[in-house]
């Protein structure tokens, strides 16, 4: 009867041993490989540091000009360029320039790494249903598991710093680009694929002449989402000692400084909007000729 009213749970000692066992073996693992893993990520750390320093050291007018140029190149919209310049000026005027540069550096590097990892995985997923079946639940976990949970092993292995922050951001931000690369390739019109086959395209030729170009708008939507998620993760990453706008938000939360919190928060929003509009407009331009019209 007690089985009916009380859940049949493990005894307290059993549970403690169970957790201890796993924690213990994980610690052993770190003991054995921790340094190796840390060394493996050294080049990444150096690159990220170098990139941060570069953005901070570049005189602000030049930086502003570069940002404006990139926004123009992506969006071809004067309105967006003007909006970008104004927001960046306000950010600088309110004393957040350097933090904004840190955040920009982290987001950029995280996005590049997400693209480099995510697109090949997406391509493989599109080619194999079995691989897709394996990867999809992993992506679901990556997107739904509370970030703090995977921060624990990251911190245990790599400690606190830029690289663990970057890894946390990547784990959170990489799924959309993987998913949308896979989806984009799977959605390519079968008639066009058949034409490529009929003309004797090898699988590789088909990938590069048909599938990737036609999937590009979707892949780009993935890049856009990845950037947004990376920016959203900046505050959490600051828990791991990543400096930038996120850290200021964290400080504001800890000390209940409303203005500081909102200022830095809105700066993140402003950067997010700039990234979002630019990449969306760029995606639209990619798509210009892609819709098929019959008759």
């Amino acid at each position: 009867m007690s089985l009916f009213t009380e859940f049949p749970e493990m005894t307290r000692t059993e549970l403690r041993d169970f957790k201890k066992g796993i924690d213990g073996s994980f610690k052993d693992f770190i003991h054995a490989y921790g340094e190796g893993i840390e060394n493996f990520f050294k080049p990444l750390l150096h690159f990220l540091k170098w990139f941060e320093d570069l953005l901070v050291a570049t005189p602000w007018p030049i930086m502003l000009a570069i940002i404006a140029l990139l926004v123009w190149g992506g969006s071809r919209s004067w309105g967006l360029v003007a909006g970008t310049i104004i927001s960046m000026l306000v950010i600088g005027y309110l004393g957040m320039w350097e933090d904004a540069m840190f955040t920009l550096a982290l987001t950029t590097v995280a996005t590049i790494i997400c693209i480099v990892i995510g697109i090949p995985i997406g391509i493989l997923m599109s080619k194999s249903d079995r691989f897709q079946a394996v990867i999809t639940p992993i992506l679901d976990i990556m997107q739904t598991i509370p970030a703090f949970v995977y921060l624990i092993p990251i911190v245990m292995i790599l400690g606190i710093g830029l690289v663990p922050g970057l890894i946390a951001v990547i784990i959170y931000a990489v799924p959309p680009i993987v998913r949308l690369t896979n989806l984009g390739i799977r959605l390519v019109d079968t008639d066009i694929l058949e034409a490529a086959d009929a003309f004797g395209a090898s699988p590789r030729q088909k990938l590069w002449t048909v599938q990737m170009p036609l999937a590009l708008p979707n892949i780009f939507a993935g890049v856009n989402q990845t950037i947004m998620m990376a920016l959203a993760m900046v505050v959490v990453a600051s828990l791991l000692g990543v400096h930038g706008l996120g850290l200021e938000v964290l400080k504001a939360v800890n000390s209940q400084y409303i203005t500081l919190g909102f200022m830095n928060g809105l700066a993140i929003v402003a950067i997010a909007i700039v990234f979002d509009r630019t990449s969306q407009k760029f995606g639209k331009r990619l798509q210009k000729h892609s819709e098929v019209i019959h008759g």
Partner: peptide, 10 residues
């Protein structure tokens, strides 16, 4: 040559 043309739209 295909009924629905199957040209590369890009």
């Amino acid at each position: 040559v295909f009924q629905k043309f199957a040209l590369l739209p890009h």
